[in-house]
Design a protein around this nucleic acid. Structure first.
Length: 744
RNA sequence: GGGCGCUUAGCUCAGUUGGUUAGAGCAGCUGGCUUACAUCCAGCAGGUCGGGGGUUCGAGUCCCUCAGCGCCCACCA
C-alpha cells in the first residue's frame, strides 16, 4: 500500500536468496508496459471510473525534485482507487508551449520568428547558430520548438518510468499537440459565438523585453528602490505653484492631469483650474477623485498615460486624454508637441527638452529628466529614496509598462459570484487552500487577457477583412468551421478567399497572436479526455474526480480551468482539488535556479532507489511544504528492504503453494492479528478516501514494524512446524494474508 | 494594509472530535551475528508542547493576545 511499486508477486515463486532493491524499477516498468497493467478501461460507466486531471509539467525546464514529490502523492491516490475496483483514468501531458521554450529555441538554433513570412517546407536550421538570427515563419518556428520539446519530454518520461508512476501512457498529450490546438480553438470559437470573449484596444500591462501583453494572473510585485521627486507645477491662476511627488519623473511629458481627493481642503480651491507642466508647458487640469490619498506624498498626484494601473483608472473614469510616450520595446517615442499635436505654451522649448530623452530607455530617460528638472529649477529639494512594490511579469526582468494594444479578453469579472460559489462547491485538500481562490476572485480587477504577441502557442483561429483603404476590419472576424480545426491563420486562409488575397485591400489577414498558455492549459480535462474527438470517452471521465496541483498556480491553472468549464459546461471540472506543498532545499529554503540550490531527482534515485524517494514524498503531508531529506529516504529504503525480507519469511514457509485462506487462522494470537489488520485497513481506507496518503502510510508503516518485531517473533517457532499441524497452518495463513493485505 | 498557514525531544515530523505518566523515526549512548533481515534486534537517555492570559474537574488540543518564520492577496502617485 504505501510503496506501490512493490516487487512482490502474490505467490512464493522464485524467492531470491538475498533480496535486493537494485534494478527493480526498470524491470517492473517494462512489465507494466507489456501487460498494460494500468490501462484505463474505457468501457466502464462513469460511476466505476476515477479520473485524474494530471498536471502537465513544463518540459522546457530541467527535472526538479518537486516533480517527484507531487506526482508521487497523486500516484498513491490512483493506486488506492484501483484497489477499490475503479478504472482509473490517469493520463500524462506535457506543457510545452510558452515563452521559455521560445527563448531556448531562438538561442539553440539561432533563429527569430517573423509571423508575416510564409511557411518554408524545405527550411533546415543551420548546424551551428550564426551571428545573425535567421527570420523564419511561425510554422517553421513552431516546428523547431516541437523538435526541442520532444527531446525534453523523453527525459521526463524516463524519470516517470523510473519512479514507477502508474500513469496510462496510452493517454499521453502535449499542450501544443494537434488535439490540444483543436480543443483550444474550438473552445475559443464557441466562446466567441456565445459572446464570452471580446476584443479591445486598451491600456494593457506589457513586458518590454518579451514584447507581449501579460495578464493579471502573471503579475508579481517586487520591492524595488525608487525615489520621490518633488516637482513644482506653476498655477495658471497666478497663485504660485502646486507641488506634487512622483516616482516616475521621466513620464512628465505624458502628464494629463493632477488629481487630489475631493474632500481635501488644501486642493479644493484648485479643482477646475489648470496648471502647467514644468519643462513642457502643457496645461493640465486639476481634478478630484476618491482614489487620491491625502496622506501620500503631497496629497496631489500627477496622472500620466500611463505610469501605473491607478493612472489607467483615473484616465478612464475622469475621461482624460492620452499622451503615449513609451514604445512596446520600452523606449521613449517621438512626442508631437505643437499645434497639430499636444498643445503647449512653447512648442520649440518643449521639443528641445524632449529631444533629450527621446529614444532612451526608461532608466536612462529618468536620469536625464532629473538633470533637466534640476537645471530648470523645477525639482524641489533632493529626491527622497524609498522602497516600493513594482509590478513585474513573473518571468520578466524589467518593470512592466502600460501600453495600448489590441487584445482578446474573456469576461471573467462578471463571473465573480458564480466562481465564488464553485470555489465553495469544490472539495479542497487541505480545505484552507480554498481561501486562495476566494481572495483571487474577489480581487479580480481586469478581465482575463488571453492573447500574447508571441509565436509558440495556439494561434487564434480568426482572420480579418482588409478594407479597400488597407486598414484592418477587426469588427467581424472571419472564422473557420469546427471541422477545419486546428488552423493556423498565418498559413491557412478563410473560406471564400485565396492565398493571393492575403494582406491586400479587399482581402484578409490572419490574427497574428497566440493564446495565453493558460488558455490552453485551462482545458486539460477536455484535452486529455478528447472532448469532441471522442465523445464517448469524454462522457466517461468528465467531470473529473480530482485535480492535483501546486498552490502557487491556484490563481492561474485552477482558476482558469474552473472558468472554462463553467462557460462551456456550466459545472465544476472536478469534484476534488488536492493542493501539494513545495519542496524546500535541505535548509528549508525555497529552491530557485538563481540561488543554485535546485535538487535534481535522478542522482537521488540512483543512490537510494525509487521506493526511497517515493517514501520521502509520501511522508509529506497534503499541502505542506517539505524539505528534501536524505535521512528520510534512507528510512524509506530500509522499509523497502524490510518488506522484501519479511516477505521472504512469510512466503518462504509456503514453498510454492498459494496463500492459504483466512479460514485456517485459528490460534487466538493469529486471530487477534487479523483483527488489528482489519482496523488498519479501515483506518487507511478512511485516510485515502480523504486523500490523505501520508496518514495511510504512517498507520500502515507503524503496523508493519509491530508486525515484524512482535508478531513474527512470537509465532516464528510455530510457523516452522509441520504444515499439517493446524497451529502451524494458522500461523502461516495469518502471516501470508497479512503480508498480502499490507502490500495491497 | 488585509488574509492564511506554521511554531511539540539536537534534527524531521505525528498527535483525528479537549481525558490517565506527550509519541515515532533519525542522530546519541548501552548490549546482542537469536535459522526473514547486522540493510537487524533489545534497551537507555532526551520535551516549561513559541510567550502571556482565559474557558474547563481537566488544554499540545478550544478562545483572546503578543512574537518569530513562511505564504497568498492588495489601485504601491
Amino acid at each position: 500500500m504505501p510503496t506501490p511499486s512493490q516487487p512482490l508477486e502474490p505467490t512464493a515463486r522464485s524467492i531470491p536468496e538475498k533480496p535486493s532493491l537494485e534494478g527493480l524499477e526498470e524491470r517492473w516498468a517494462d512489465r507494466w508496459a507489456d501487460e498494460q497493467t494500468y490501462a484505463f478501461d474505457a468501457s466502464r460507466p462513469r460511476s466505476e471510473v476515477f479520473s485524474i486531471d494530471t498536471p502537465p509539467p513544463t518540459v522546457s525546464g530541467s527535472l526538479h525534485i518537486g516533480h517527484v514529490f507531487s506526482y508521487t502523492h497523486t500516484d498513491a491516490i490512483a493506486r488506492y482507487q484501483r484497489m477499490t475496483g475503479k478504472s482509473v483514468f490517469y493520463p500524462m501531458g506535457w506543457d510545452d508551449n510558452g515563452l521559455p521554450t521560445e527563448r531556448r529555441v531562438e538561442n539553440y538554433f539561432g533563429v527569430r520568428c517573423d509571423p508575416s513570412l510564409p511557411y518554408d517546407p524545405a527550411f533546415q536550421p543551420p548546424a551551428e547558430p550564426g551571428k545573425e538570427r535567421i527570420s523564419i515563419s511561425r510554422p517553421n518556428f513552431v516546428e523547431l520548438c516541437l523538435e526541442l520539446t520532444t527531446r525534453d519530454e523523453e527525459v521526463f518520461k524516463a524519470l516517470w518510468h523510473s519512479l514507477g508512476l502508474s500513469v496510462d501512457w496510452n493517454y499521453e498529450y502535449a499542450t501544443i499537440g494537434q488535439g490540444a490546438q483543436r480543443a483550444s480553438q474550438r473552445a475559443f470559437l464557441r466562446q466567441l459565438t456565445r459572446g464570452e470573449v471580446y476584443q479591445a484596444e486598451a491600456p494593457t500591462l506589457w513586458d518590454v523585453d518579451f514584447r507581449t501583453a501579460v495578464s493579471q494572473a502573471e503579475l508579481e510585485d517586487r520591492e524595488r528602490p525608487g525615489a520621490y521627486h518633488r516637482l513644482a507645477f506653476p498655477r495658471n491662476d497666478g497663485g504660485g505653484v502646486v507641488e506634487i511627488e512622483t516616482t516616475r519623473p521621466e513620464l512628465l511629458a505624458a502628464c494629463v492631469a493632477l488629481v487630489a481627493h475631493p474632500d481635501d481642503e488644501r486642493y479644493q480651491p484648485l479643482f477646475g483650474t489648470t496648471v502647467s507642466t514644468p519643462l513642457f508647458g502643457v496645461d493640465v487640469p486639476v481634478v478630484a477623485h476618491e482614489l487620491a490619498e491625502p496622506t501620500k506624498g503631497s496629497g496631489i498626484a500627477m496622472v500620466c498615460t500611463f505610469g501605473d494601473t491607478t493612472d489607467v483608472i483615473w484616465w478612464r473614469e475622469l475621461d482624460l486624454p492620452t499622451r503615449t510616450l513609451i514604445s512596446r520595446e520600452g523606449r521613449f517615442l517621438n512626442a508631437p508637441f505643437g499645434d497639430t499635436g499636444w498643445e503647449c505654451r512653447d512648442p520649440e522649448a518643449a521639443r528641445v527638452a524632449y529631444a533629450e530623452i527621446e529614444g532612451k530607455n526608461v532608466k536612462a530617460a529618468q536620469t536625464r529628466m532629473v538633470e533637466l528638472l534640476v537645471e530648470a529649477g523645477a525639482l524641489i529639494g533632493e529626491p527622497r529614496p524609498i522602497t516600493h512594490p513594482v509590478k513585474f511579469f513573473e518571468k520578466g526582468d524589467r518593470p512592466l509598462e502600460i501600453v495600448t494594444s489590441r487584445q482578446w479578453f474573456v469576461s471573467t469579472q462578471t463571473m465573480r459570484e458564480t466562481l465564488l460559489r464553485r470555489g465553495e462547491e469544490l472539495v479542497w485538500h487541505p480545505d484552507y487552500m480554498s481561501h486562495r481562490l476566494r481572495t483571487w476572485v474577489e480581487g479580480l480587477n481586469a478581465d482575463w487577457n488571453i492573447s500574447r504577441q508571441r509565436f509558440f502557442g495556439v494561434p487564434f483561429p480568426v482572420w480579418y477583412r482588409v478594407n479597400s483603404d488597407g486598414s484592418v476590419n477587426h469588427r467581424s472576424p472571419l472564422v473557420p468551421t469546427e471541422d477545419r480545426l486546428p488552423v493556423d491563420p498565418s498559413t491557412d486562409r478563410p473560406d471564400g478567399f485565396d492565398e493571393a488575397q492575403r494582406g491586400v485591400p479587399g482581402g484578409f489577414v490572419g490574427d497574428p497572436d497566440v493564446m495565453d498558455t493558460w488558455a490552453t492549459s485551462s482545458l486539460t480535462p477536455q484535452i486529455a479526455g478528447r472532448w469532441e474527438d471522442d465523445p464517448d470517452l469524454f462522457s466517461r471521465i468528465f467531470p473529473m474526480d480530482v485535480r492535483p496541483q501546486a498552490h502557487e498556480i491556484i490563481r492561474t491553472w485552477l482558476f482558469t480551468t474552473v472558468v472554462r468549464s463553467e462557460l462551456e459546461f456550466g459545472c465544476l471540472p472536478w469534484r476534488h482539488a488536492t493542493i501539494s506543498g513545495w519542496v524546500l532545499d535541505p535548509d528549508r529554503k525555497k529552491m530557485s535556479k538563481s540561488k543554485g540550490n535546485v535538487v535534481t531527482p535522478m542522482p537521488l534515485i540512483e543512490t537510494h532507489g525509487a521506493d526511497a524517494l517515493r517514501y520521502w514524498a509520501a511522508c509529506g503531508r497534503p499541502g505542506t511544504d517539505t524539505a528534501v531529506d536524505e535521512g528520510q529516504m534512507k528510512v524509506g529504503r530500509r522499509l523497502a528492504i524490510k518488506i522484501l525480507n519479511a516477505s521472504r519469511f512469510a512466503l518462504g514457509r509456503l514453498d510454492d503453494n498459494p496463500v492459504p485462506p483466512l479460514s485456517e487462522v485459528s490460534e487466538p494470537i493469529d486471530v487477534d492479528l487479523i483483527g488489528q489488520l482489519a482496523d488498519l485497513v479501515a483506518d487507511a481506507t478512511k485516510a485515502f478516501d480523504e486523500f490523505d496518503y501520508a496518514r495511510a502510510l504512517e498507520r500502515t508503516e507503524a503496523f508493519f514494524w509491530r508486525f515484524c518485531d512482535d508478531y513474527v517473533e512470537l509465532v516464528k517457532t510455530r510457523a516452522y512446524g509441520d504444515p499439517s499441524d493446524p497451529r502451524t497452518a494458522s500461523a502461516q495463513a495469518a502471516l501470508s494474508n497479512t503480508l498480502s493485505v499490507l502490500l495491497g
